[in-house]
Amino acid sequence: MSRVTIPEVEHAYPGSTGCPGCGANLVMRYLLKGLGERTILTIPACCWAVMPGYWPSHCLKVPMVYCAFEATGASLSGIRAALDMKGVEDVTVVGFAGDGGTVDIGLQALSGAAERGTDAIYVMYDNEAYMNTGIQRSGATPWGAWTTTTPVGSSRDYKREPKKDIMSIMEAHGIPYAATVSVAHPEDFVKKAKKAKDARGLKFIHALSPCPPGWKMNPMKTIEIARLAVDTNVFPLYEVENGRLRITKKGKGLPIEDYLSTQGRFRHLTEEEVKRMQESVDSSLKALEEREAREG
């Protein structure tokens, strides 16, 4: 007997034009397994605006609106308002945007949708740079990473600023549900998608989405690297439900080198810099654990 641990139903067709090993394809696949077919997506400029393929190709079994880059939050509110006017209540409205479209150009509209309490799920698939335009730094690019706009020349001018803490930003809006998810842990992902679907208001899901070309990694390692991100505590899996935080999957506490060494974008880092990153990861995890203990 086979051991299927996530819903078998597929809401995605093969033939999407995402890169081989694309994490964002998996984010969509797991998300829809959790949400089901009565879902409407709105997607701004990002890899996923290209991945359904050229007209008339569509790689999903649910309807999808293409919206302007910075407009996902507003698009969510517009869709929900139209459904309300038509008396349709059993549809999940989802904004699905990249990290640049979320933490940078789309932050205002997202904040507006959260403040308005638009009943929708906003999913940020985070490949940690502007990947659709070809690997430029975003506010979600981690400290120390190479991108084409943080090149590592003789000045070693890699990204010098820490990754924007979008989970805290969203939490500060007092939203009912926020969660981090990983493509290496689809069971946890699907469970959180269902929880988000059942909560009312604006829900936020932060999905780490490995990008083989952008991270300078082997496409076969997408799951392995996503798993390492959790196990090195670079990307802890947790949820915040009505303000209470719970870590949903403990990492193994592996050293951060195990994660960094899998990706060319971190190759230039010195031992000292890796140590600094380890300290940063450790203190973030400590803060999470302390908070969980307080609220648990």
């Binding site: 093969p14 033939g15 999407s16 034009t17 393929g53 008339p56 569509h58």
Partner: peptide, 16 residues
Amino acid sequence: PISDTPSTVNMTGLWR
């Protein structure tokens, strides 16, 4: 442009 043709028209196996 309303896309309603399944993406199985894209023979992405050719990239392999």
